[in-house]
Nucleic acid binder design. Structure first.
Lengths: 207, 207
DNA sequence: CCATCTCTCTACCATTTGGTAGAGAGATTT
DNA sequence: AAATCTCTCTACCAAATGGTAGAGAGATGG
């Protein structure tokens, strides 16, 4: 019965799944252990407490997210194309590993005390994203606006549309792969419209 | 010690607060009771189980949301102005009763089985919103796109920007009232850009 | 061959949790 | 005044939870 994947890693994966899907409080170590075909004490051998396990899950997930992001950002795209490439990537993530986005939502919950741990990891990446937006605005490839706010809008929109399956069902959008692509296509159109620089023929709106 | 507000309602309010902030699993009846200065059994007198209490909270919250929405929709605005009015209203809600949006997020979580209860309430309102978008697109006051998808994008963006305080902090946006207004202003600009009709033969730009 | 290290297990435990049973105190009705 | 109804309480309870202590088994190294 010896699996080739080391136990510690199997625990981490199962925990990410559970925390990201059901949330921290709704996940019990016993249930996790049973799902792994192992005793709870085996989990506690690798991670001294539930909170420590959660922290490790966050670290692991954050590394994955950052890597994915940096990888997609290092292809030298510019303007809306770069934004679209990342949106596309996040959607693939929402399909292949929905629990990852779920974990982000769990961590960023109002009462959470673990946010710091996540933002420690993604902070530099966020800074780079903001710098990118700023640069592209200056170059005239994106509509001018506040980069921080724009980033927040982008984040909310993309993660929301990518992961809020239940809301989508309530709005009559099926969870099929086809519908997912449709959502992404429509979202891309939405973002393009919002991000495209104002028509150079017309004077830029000042405030 | 007799409060003027009836106990049942006080329980409902405190429960909405707790469920919307910490989530269902992380909320215990004992903690709720203590916070109310009452015994757990008093709660169980009005609501036969924790799940029943949660259901009632959803019902109550859904009624509030629908009322707020319909009220804002009955003022006869059109096009982007109507969208902006509702965004404005949701932001006010995010400030005055953040737990309400938190509850929506809790209910629409992937593992949730209670989604039906919420969508039963808001279904008709969602339909009306979709019909509105469709109508305004046909009238040329909004850019043409898939109404369902647009609604989803709008929902995700607005609720996300309005309520993801922790993400905002991670992105260097303070939680002050001034920052909230800034977020709303920026979001409005973002949405106007995305929603404005493509061909501005006579694009009404009201303010 | 003995000692140590790694890993998983059994055996418990204190606390918390949602929930049951039913008593007691006012108020209201008959 | 008696009976009933409304509301909140005390007293429990079985199950689940996170966690401690330490044994056993196999591999590794001196």
């Amino acid at each position: 019965m010896n699996n080739s994947v080391p136990t510690r890693q199997r625990v981490l994966e199962a925990a990410l799944n559970a925390f990201g899907t059901d949330g921290y409080a709704a996940t019990s170590l016993d249930a996790l252990a049973e799902q792994l075909g192992v005793r709870k004490q085996t989990i506690l051998y690798y991670f001294p407490s539930k909170q420590a396990l959660f922290d490790s899950v966050i670290d692991s997930a954050a590394r994955d997210l950052v890597e994915l992001f940096e990888q997609e950002a290092s292809r030298g795209l510019t303007g809306i194309d770069q934004v679209e490439a990342i949106v596309r990537r996040i959607f693939r993530l929402a399909v292949s590993r929905p629990e990852l986005l779920g974990l982000v939502r769990e961590v960023t919950r109002p009462g959470s005390i673990t946010v710091g741990r996540l933002s420690d990891h993604v902070g530099p990446t966020v800074d780079r994203a903001r710098a990118f937006l700023e640069r592209e605005m200056t170059a005239g490839r994106l509509r001018r606006s506040d980069p921080s706010m724009l980033l927040l809008s982008l984040y909310s929109t993309v993660v929301g549309v990518a992961s809020e399956l239940e809301v989508q069902r309530a709005m009559g959008i099926g969870p099929s792969a086809r519908a997912t692509v449709g959502r992404r296509t429509e979202l891309t159109r939405f973002l393009r419209a919002a991000l495209a620089p104002t028509d150079p023929g017309r004077a830029p709106e000042s405030r």
